[in-house]
Design a protein around this nucleic acid. Structure first.
Lengths: 130, 130
DNA sequence: CAGGATCCAGGAAGATACTG
DNA sequence: CAGTATCTTCCTGGATCCTG
């Protein structure tokens, strides 16, 4: 129970806030999740990834993969073929996200159902899902 | 265990993805979390909120509060005093976020520790936390 | 093939001023 | 007090072209 009253000093509170922001930050952006998902099929090469998630430009893909590398979710392997082959694959550590993602997914599903049941339109969600 | 291999069809996968995106969306942005946190102290008025989280402009605060209302995390109450008094307070439903936030917070803390231990600088996190 | 370089568009957020 | 209106700025991400 994060941030509950009994433990609600400024210090613990802002520490908690920062931790949550850390977590949100590594998952945020348009491509992080799709990238992680597609790599769960196994190692893939740059162009394979690009095809599999469609419409991502090389620049963005490159940047996103570097982010994922920095956070140790993805490992980049270079093979000295000609021309060189580069593969990206998920690390074991990336599995630590499973619990978080699972929680987000469950909450997200019930939230959408709730809004629909209440016959409220939810522009914020519609925007995201098209 | 989201997105695990055995259940990895395109349909279930993209449904899961969308649910996660829904959840991320409602928590995202610069002000959603700070706002929820400050309202955990109890109902507050517009200007009180503004002072308590510092540096948010009325326009942004107004918009963020409307988002939180749409998602049913916050309820707006108008009192016919002169001048009118408006309070914002958390709904019970907002408590459903506790589990999610808790999971995010725990993961965020261990992730930061991990990166520090590995002596990797983590630009992505440093940017966020200053 | 695997990316980097350059330029550009759109949305989120800030500054400032104003109103019922 | 509780916002709205307008203008500007910044930042993410996209388009296009280029190279070891």
């Amino acid at each position: 129970m994060a941030f509950r009253k009994e433990n609600h000093t400024k210090e613990t509170c802002s520490a908690s806030l920062n931790a949550v922001k850390d977590a949100l930050y590594v998952l945020n952006g348009k491509w992080k999740l799709p990238l992680i998902l597609t790599l769960q099929d196994g190692p893939k090469r740059f162009n394979e990834i690009q095809k599999s998630i469609g419409d991502i430009t090389p620049k963005i893909l490159s940047k996103e993969l570097k982010d994922l590398e920095l956070n140790e979710f993805v490992i980049r392997k270079v093979f000295s073929t000609t021309p060189v082959t580069v593969t990206y694959e998920l690390t074991e550590y990336s599995g630590s996200l499973d619990r978080v993602i699972d929680e987000l997914r469950n909450w997200g599903m019930q939230h959408r159902e709730r809004l629909v049941m209440n016959r409220k339109t939810a522009p914020v969600l519609e925007e995201v899902l098209g």
